[in-house]
């Protein structure tokens, strides 16, 4: 306990610094969650349990009946451009949640590159990718703890 032996002002300063660093560390602990979803117009497939948080927005804005979770990846924010593999797609994210660059590729070919703002509880959905078995593919980006 060498800290306890320090003079009081130094101990106070160290304590304040630790508190500040802890608080800023808490704020910087955001994680980007990317879910790859397959949507189909038939209701028989149902909705994956892991999509309940985004189901209301999907139901309000899209005409599909079923939503299946086919892949998922997470990465810490700010993103550093690391390559993620989600299903047959490669995703590269770079930057902070305020201005996140997302690039989706398939094979060696880039399909989509976009700059978006992602907020907690405000997902960004990138969709319209065709699915071989029918329906549409989309990527849901959310910020989580």
């Amino acid at each position: 306990m060498s800290l306890m032996r320090l003079q009081s002002p130094v101990r106070l300063l160290a304590l304040a610094l630790i508190l500040l660093l802890t608080a800023s560390g808490q704020l910087a602990a955001d994680t980007l969650r990317i879910r790859m979803i397959r949507a189909t117009p038939e209701a028989a497939d149902g909705v994956a349990p892991g999509l309940q948080d985004v189901l209301p927005v999907l139901r309000r804005t899209l005409a599909f009946k079923s939503y299946q979770l086919d892949g998922e990846a997470t990465l810490p924010l700010p993103a550093n451009g690391e390559l993620l593999r989600v299903g047959v797609y490669q995703i590269i994210c770079e930057g902070i949640a305020d201005r996140l660059t997302v690039q989706i590729s398939h094979g060696n070919k880039r399909i989509l590159r976009t700059v978006a703002t992602v907020r907690r509880d405000q997902p960004v959905i990138l969709g319209g990718f065709p699915v071989r078995t029918g329906g549409a593919r989309m990527f849901v980006l959310t910020v989580v703890d």
Binding site: V57, R60, A116, I125, G128, F129
Partner: peptide
């Protein structure tokens, strides 16, 4: 309602 943003591409 949710402030979600959606980018949808058709006939990709």
């Amino acid at each position: 309602t949710s402030r979600a943003a959606i980018l949808w591409v058709t006939n990709l």
